[in-house]
Design a protein around this nucleic acid. Structure first.
Lengths: 132, 132
DNA sequence: CTTTTTGCAAAACCTTTGCACAACC
DNA sequence: GGTTGTGCAAAGGTTTTGCAAAAAG
């Protein structure tokens, strides 16, 4: 039943996502993919983003702006939210501490911890320039 | 202008939140406070939750369910999301590593990092019992 | 051909907002 | 009396869904 037929639209959505280092919203994906497929609908974009994230090909993220953001980079990494402009950036941070964090925290917890995500916040490089 | 008159409704909302260790949604707050104030409206609940979080008396959190959750515990702590039942728990974890995390990560980042939140995920104590 | 996917539009959903009235000091 | 807060209902914005037609394999 679940045999995926990789449509052009779905491919275009994933390809677009892979070109971006920030984490576009569905709206942004829609506007960009529409330049190649002018008749694509927002519904299709949402359906594919949901499908791709269910399949684990992309990540779906929720930030304080209340919107869903999507990220084609599914490696474990952290995110940064700028409190000035709202932009979202990757943080390449992965220390040994971080690798063992789950275990350490799990030792004081009755359940089972399988992973974590860390969200940093502050002021992004761009806003630092303009506001100083 | 911003002289707060602590209404009964606002008090009831905050009081309710302080009795809970999980992180209720606005809807949950509404349903519970309504038992004391049957005529309170959802709008009022949202207004007060927004107000309280703007004042820093409570935290507003976003989880994967897409809903806003509210937490009267504003101390720095982490959260745990159960991937089975969706419940959200506090994690009492605050190591020295964690305290210096912002600085360490900031050293490889052009912007300014002012804080972070870590979300753990896995299987909660309750679900561990039933699924084993 | 059969199944999956699309486009469109409507619906669902959570959250915010406008306004007249009530509560507070 | 002037300000702040409420209830109600309507509006706002994002995401999901139903359905017939189109695309994919």
């Amino acid at each position: 039943m679940a045999s995926i037929k990789y449509s052009r639209q779905r491919k275009a959505i994933k390809d677009f996502l892979m070109t971006r280092k920030d984490h576009p919203t569905a709206e942004t994906v829609y506007l960009n993919v529409r330049e190649t497929y002018p008749h694509i609908s927002l519904g299709t974009v949402y359906r594919n983003l949901t499908l791709l994230s269910d399949m684990g090909e992309i990540q779906r993220l929720h930030f304080k702006d209340g919107l869903d953001h999507f990220d084609a980079d599914i490696r474990s990494h952290s995110h940064f939210l700028c409190t000035e402009c709202g932009s979202v950036l990757d943080i390449d941070y992965q220390s040994d501490d971080d690798l063992y964090l789950d275990e350490r925290v799990n030792s004081g917890f009755d359940g089972r911890i399988t992973g974590h995500i860390t969200y940093f916040q502050g002021i992004c490089p761009e806003c630092c320039k303009t506001s100083v």
